[in-house]
Design a protein around this nucleic acid. Structure first.
Lengths: 214, 214
DNA sequence: GGATGAGACTTGACACCGTCAAGTGGTCGG
DNA sequence: CCGACCACTTGACGGTGTCAAGTCTCATCC
């Protein structure tokens, strides 16, 4: 006689709220996210989520934190791979774009300071820093081996970050996202990475000088 | 006895609504934009704006359209400048970032398909296309003169676009936007452009072969 | 010159939103 | 047994976007 339970009572509500929020953002965009709809989907009253999150912003912060964590892990994975620094950088870049495409809801929330204010959520901030450091190291490898003046390393980090971030944004929400299909988008991404590789390695370079690092 | 007038009655309401919307987004972010607050600021009743825009989305669409127009003009201006193709590309890129920094409200609205749906507003779409074509030509100049395989031109357009778009997004809303001051941001942008130029022109290149085009 | 009708704007209502405040039922340590 | 706590519900408040129905002004036509 214990059937007056919510649909999935065995999972704790906090996780269900987060999952419902992500699903809602994925389906209807950020504007479609409403506390009450989330509660409805989780099968609880409209106030139940407030027992696990103080307010709407904290839900978004939790999602953003999750996102930065996954992003950091993806970049660190690329950093640990074998191959030339340039290849590792490319892998990291692909991981960045891949993350955005696989977790669009997370990605869209992560870079909306008016919704999240990362500074107020230390663990999210820490994850974001971790991701940045991984990116920095990926670029450092290329700088070290490619004959770039050390002074420009910082600029190159921002170039690489801007490139992958902009590509992710455009693929997700840019004009091309509407007009191109999935396969075409993938081809465009691949073409962009190939272009970027040529910029980094030089137009003619087919292979890079061996790195003996580490 | 005709003093029961709104604050600035001589300007037509449509323009005032748009201006108030932009100001509101600039001050409080996209979340702070509310039809009623806009109406309040324009000194009219909460329904008055509906006589000039069918709904909230149309206001945003008008702002986005304006934005794409200004962006296109900025890029076309760079395209018409003297100098090497690489220099023109850089000018165009700076125009892109400059636009984002000077008109953050416009920029934030322009790439939010869930808010705007550009396809439904032909003139906005046309302006966006114009901007894209200008960018395409800026890159084409570099490809033509720089010994790049023609086949990779499309990829390079996306690289350049991603770079300037990502840089703009990061400078406006990325983690660095919070921690860095205005002057530091400008320095970072300059550093990124210098890094990108080195990628395009080659690491050692101080000057580019003269272009006799046009 | 008075009727007419269209446009610009207001007033009022509705459902929905985020959030504060006050219950409600069950579990558990003493 | 009992009170304190916990997870949750119910109810209310002010704010939102938008539909529907006035009102007010003024150019136009008979």
């Amino acid at each position: 006689m214990s059937r007056n339970k919510p649909p999935v009572p065995e999972v704790d509500l906090r996780a269900r709220v987060l999952a419902a929020s992500v699903a809602l953002i994925t389906e209807e965009g950020l504007a479609g996210l409403s506390m009450r709809e989330v509660a409805r989907r989780a099968g609880v009253s409209h106030q139940a989520p407030y027992h696990h999150f103080p307010d709407r912003a904290s839900i978004l912060a939790a999602i953003a934190g999750d996102g930065f964590l996954q992003l950091a892990e993806g970049l660190e994975l690329a950093l640990g791979k074998k191959g030339t620094p340039s290849e590792r950088l490319r892998l990291g870049g692909r991981a960045y774009v891949e993350f955005a495409r696989r977790h669009p809801a997370h990605f869209r929330v992560m870079f909306r300071p008016e919704l999240v204010d990362l500074e107020a959520y230390p663990e999210g901030k820490a994850a974001a820093d971790r991701a940045y450091r991984a990116l920095e190291q990926l670029v450092a490898g290329v700088v070290e081996v490619g004959g770039w003046p050390e002074a420009h390393a910082q600029g190159l980090v921002l170039v690489a970050w801007s490139f992958v971030h902009g590509l992710s944004s455009l693929v997700l929400d840019g004009p091309i996202a509407k007009t191109l299909g999935d396969a075409e988008l993938e081809a465009a991404v691949e073409g962009a990475f190939e272009g970027f590789r040529r910029l980094v390695d030089g137009p003619g370079a087919k292979k890079v000088r061996r790195s003996t690092r580490r």
